[in-house]
Design a protein around this nucleic acid. Structure first.
Length: 493
RNA sequence: CGAGAUAUAGCGCAGUUGGUAGCGCGCCACGUUCGGGACGUGGAGGCCGGGCGUUCGAGUCGCCCUAUCUCGACCA
């Protein structure tokens, strides 16, 4: 039975369902028995590990170190920063008791009312508060700065509505939290990490992004500025793929973190925080997949190559095994990861379909004909094309092919985005074009009122005020008031 | 949290006016197969999401939970 990934990549009517089916069928994740939570299955987790390792290397290269802070945050910490608590209060899981006891009626266990916590604990939705209460003890002098810490952790946000990878109640992420002596240094750090994210998403995930700043209403709760990278999915909806926040002195003031500078003057510490999550996997899936399944860029595929033998009997398989062994060795020596699937319980056709579904970038197949001719069949996942080539020099050929696939997947996504990015002058045109999905560059008067009106009437939000684009001033498409530059609108996840 | 839908075998689904639980895929055994998700024969597998009611009798009718999906509101 063929996998029925519905033909929806080009349509948006039920893209969400298509995505869900794909995640399930590609064996990446499933819903858990816990409401809104996700089980990441081994193949899905292997992709996450690739993401983690690469990002972690990039953090280290930019001078960051890893640390770990508690899962539980005293309730009172959250209320120290007014905007922060307002932003997160509605979605917190709260621990109120520390013990269970046998139900007096003899059925199971109940919460022991005697074991009520003096102060409730919040399961972290993000760690600014617990980290800044800690940093207070770490920082006395300018000599203690900067602190450049990252933590890999899970966080919980009790969202009303969830979707695998894109918005789960619990998710995995990394959160960087840095402390600096000057405003300039903190702002520079904020932008540096934004660039690290953009570099990663474009060059490893092969997803082009727009870099920009959030408007006040889309800003992180407690930040002075929120920078973001925005990606476009195949159904024309935008997805925020990562954020980097300049927190000013807000958290330093909330947790009274001061230092003595070179002149012996006391000042509050400047802060940043930045994070990306398992949502990146959602972006990866939605940006590249087709109706045959996942399409993974080689830089993030758990294995680059799958090799499938085609044989009629054990003797023939034994011969192919020997031939493949030397090819596997050659590929491995070149740093190419290979899976040789000579399992006998599945037929070749089944395996072809299965590994396409899993998005393996390149498939090699060898059968009797190839053994005779000293050839091998190469099939690439991104274009679904195949050719039969000589085994001679296969390693070098594969290296070039993988680089080409990485580039091609990115280029395809870039072309798609270009075809879905437009500029409009009038609100009428905007209302009409927003129905087609994609990014729309338009002038906006800079007020939250106009922004809210547009959202109300069109469901489109300002994804960001782009950093690297045209800064020609103009007039707001809604009110006609002056606008300093075009901003990017889209409907989003 | 509002509106709608769904919950039956590992997965996808049937199940008529209420009367002993079905199909396809998958799984197990054997045989034939193997260059794009093979086929035959035989077999295993279900407290019909949970609870309470109506009834001689409930997968089916009623009420209450719970979970999932879609659409809103909220969000990375």
């Amino acid at each position: 039975m063929a996998v029925e990934i519905k033909e929806l990549t080009s349509r948006s009517d039920n893209y969400a369902q298509w995505y869900n089916d794909l995640v399930l069928k590609a064996d990446l994740a499933e819903n858990s028995a816990v409401r809104g939570c996700m089980v990441i299955k081994p193949y899905g987790y292997a992709i996450w590990e690739k993401i983690q390792r690469q990002l972690d290397d990039m953090f280290k290269e930019t001078g960051h170190v890893n640390a770990y802070f508690p899962l539980f945050i005293p309730k009172s910490f959250l209320s120290r920063e007014a905007n922060h608590v307002e932003g997160f209060a509605k979605e917190c899981a709260v621990v109120t008791h520390y013990r269970l006891k046998n139900d007096p009626s003899g059925k199971g266990v109940v919460v022991d009312p005697e074991a009520r916590l003096e102060e409730e604990l919040i399961v972290r939705p993000t760690s600014e508060t617990i980290i800044w209460s800690t940093y207070k003890n770490w920082i006395q002098s300018y000599r203690d700065l900067p602190i450049l810490c990252n933590q890999w952790a899970n966080v919980v946000r009790w969202e009303m509505r969830t979707r695998l990878f894109l918005r789960t109640a619990e998710f995995l992420w990394q959160e960087g939290h840095t402390a600096h002596a000057t405003r300039d240094e903190a702002e520079e750090e904020t932008r540096r990490m934004l660039n690290v994210y953009a570099d990663f998403v474009e060059n490893y995930m092969a997803v082009p992004v727009l870099k920009g700043v959030k408007t006040a209403s889309e800003r992180f709760a407690g930040a002075v500025d929120t920078y973001c990278i925005e990606a476009l999915m195949q159904d024309g909806k935008a997805l925020q793929a990562g954020t980097s926040h300049f927190l000013g002195q807000n958290f330093a003031k909330a947790f009274d973190v001061q230092f003595l500078d070179k002149e012996g003057k006391r000042d509050y510490v400047w802060a940043t925080s930045w994070g990306v999550s398992t949502r990146l996997m959602g972006a990866l899936i939605m940006a590249h997949s087709d109706d045959n399944g996942l399409v993974l860029p080689p830089n993030l595929a758990p294995f680059h190559i799958v090799i499938i033998p085609i044989y009629k009997n054990d003797e023939q398989l034994a011969l192919i095994n020997v031939r493949i062994e030397s090819i596997v060795d050659e590929l491995k020596s070149l740093g190419v990861s290979v899976k040789y699937d000579n399992s006998q319980n599945k037929k070749p056709g089944w395996k072809f379909a299965e590994y396409e579904l899993k998005g393996v970038p390149v498939r090699l197949a060898m059968g009797g004909r190839d053994m005779e001719n000293d050839t091998i069949e190469i099939a690439r996942r991104d274009t679904l094309t195949k050719e039969t080539v000589s085994i001679d020099g296969i390693g070098a050929r594969i290296k070039i092919l993988l680089a080409d696939i990485q580039k091609n997947i990115y280029q395809k996504a870039l072309n798609f985005r270009a075809s879905k990015t437009i500029t409009v002058e009038t609100y009428d045109e905007f209302k009409q074009k927003i129905e087609d999905g994609g990014f729309i560059f338009a002038h906006w008067d800079g007020t939250p009122e106009t922004e809210a009106l547009i959202k109300e009437e069109t469901k489109a939000t300002i994804r960001c005020i782009p950093l690297d684009s045209d800064t020609t001033p103009g007039r707001c498409m809604v009110t006609g008031k002056p606008s300093v530059q075009r901003v990017v609108f889209a409907r989003s996840y």
